[in-house]
């Protein structure tokens, strides 16, 4: 979103770019992400219904580990290195996954996840 030539490759700055300019570039990057975050959040709100099935899965997984600690599940998410995942806790579920991988990951075996205490 920031700038195509920036997001698709490494940024090589000329040596004469001063500290202030680089710092300002960092500020711009941060604002770029915050704006994307704002839009992304609104998009995710519309997909919240998809989270229901994950919540059920999360609740089952949490109960399997005694309702204690953290359960980290990393689904394969199809081809191409997709690695969506859900982070679960005994009393809540936080979903952080690739929205493009919802269906695929719903079929991922829970047993392949890792349990981390």
């Amino acid at each position: 979103m920031f700038d195509e030539k920036v997001t698709k490759g490494r940024v090589n700055f000329p040596s004469e770019v001063d500290d202030a300019a680089l710092k300002e570039f960092g500020r711009q990057l941060a604002m770029d992400s915050l704006l994307e975050d704002l839009v992304g959040d609104e998009v995710m709100q519309s997909k919240r219904f998809l989270w229901g099935r994950r919540a059920v899965l999360g609740g089952m997984a949490a109960s399997l580990v005694g309702g204690v600690g953290w359960f980290l599940y990393r689904g394969g998410g199809g081809q191409g290195g997709g690695d969506g995942g859900i982070l679960l806790h005994s009393s809540w579920v936080m979903v952080a996954t690739q929205d493009t991988d919802f269906d695929e990951c719903d079929s991922c075996p829970v047993e392949e996840g890792g349990i981390i205490f």
């Binding site: 680089l22 710092k23 960092g26 500020r27």
Partner: peptide
């Protein structure tokens, strides 16, 4: 670049 990261941190 740490200076860019500084800018991000600043925000």
């Amino acid at each position: 670049d740490s200076r860019i990261v500084d800018g991000v941190d600043d925000v």
